[in-house]
Design a protein around this nucleic acid. Structure first.
Lengths: 187, 187
DNA sequence: ACATACACGTGAGGC
DNA sequence: TGCCTCACGTGTATG
């Protein structure tokens, strides 16, 4: 309100120099008698531009602040935390979460490394552990089952999980001794 | 530079009204002859306060912007993205990461649910799958191994992971037939 | 020419 | 009182 008044004063103060009376009500046209029309026109345009500018800036601030308040709700912090410290917390949180998801996905999604190991070999039965990760596809399981069946292998344990379009599979497979000459081509 | 000049002009313009010459160099004392000393003193204090204020505000902006640039480096975005859209991306990213870690830890950290199932029973050997989650402690593994040994069980497969102070353990255990009368007290 | 984004200095208000 | 944070309007540069 009173801000607006001083704005007007300051605007005219800037656009035409100063030394006007303290009740300045745009009676400044008397200073430039020869170019009244152009001057008032350009002044109107300038004032309109100023209003647009003012409004745009207000919108911009509102946009930024809305995002900031969303972040405030997202983080564990009350509504009266600093803008700066809020952003600091956000930085810290993003780093934390990044690190966490990195660790977790490293645990559950080793990229393409397949693993094969003989867990046990007794009583003529060989027990394998097989771990592989690959892109998921609908009939992956069926193919797997049929392959194992054709090799006369028995699945003791299967752990299969899917994250982000990729699957991680851990199998414990037992093969009787009369068949494990065929295993080599599997791997 | 030229900003500073107009600042000075505007400052004096605000603090003492206007109608001074365009070369205003604080020669305004002639307007208030009776209260020269108090006025100049208070003016000096006011100007000093204004300078402090100016500098503090500059520092504050710098702090906020440094955090913002850190976020810019943290996110996949170039250095010329909007402040507002940057913050929007940050909001989105925090939500994503939050959701991801939630999913991942739900997958790998079922709270306290133990699981026990018989996978296979043939040739007089019983094969169990045991899953349990609990708080991690240093000698958990040792206790586990000794318990299994006392029960004459053989560990075929073990998958143990620790996240956030908790462990998730999956065991495949084989018991020979002459011992699995003892199993019940394990669970 | 016009829209947009940023930095700046300043007034207001809370502690 | 002084310090600190915020919102505001403005100047300036970039597209």
């Amino acid at each position: 309100m009173q801000q607006e008044i001083s704005d007007q004063i300051f605007s005219s103060f800037l656009t035409r120099g100063f030394c006007s009376s303290s009740t300045t009500t745009t009676t400044t046209s008397s200073f430039y008698p020869s170019i009244i029309e152009e001057d008032t026109i350009s002044q109107d345009k300038a004032l309109a531009a100023l209003r647009n500018h003012k409004e745009a800036e207000r919108k911009r601030r509102a946009r930024i602040n809305s995002h900031l308040s969303m972040l405030r709700n997202l983080l564990p912090c009350n509504s009266k935390t600093d803008k700066a410290t809020l952003l600091a917390k956000v930085v810290q949180r993003v780093k934390e979460l990044k690190q966490q998801t990195l660790e977790l996905s490293n645990e559950s999604l080793p990229s393409e490394t397949d693993e094969f190991s003989v867990l046990n070999f007794d009583n003529g039965r060989t027990i394998f552990k097989v771990l592989f990760c690959c892109e998921d596809r609908p009939d992956l399981m069926q193919d797997l089952v049929e392959t194992l069946k054709s090799l006369k292998m028995k699945t003791l344990y299967a752990d299969m999980s899917t994250i982000g379009g990729r699957t991680r599979n851990v199998l414990i497979v037992a093969a009787d001794k009369e068949h494990h000459g065929d295993d080599s081509h599997l791997l």
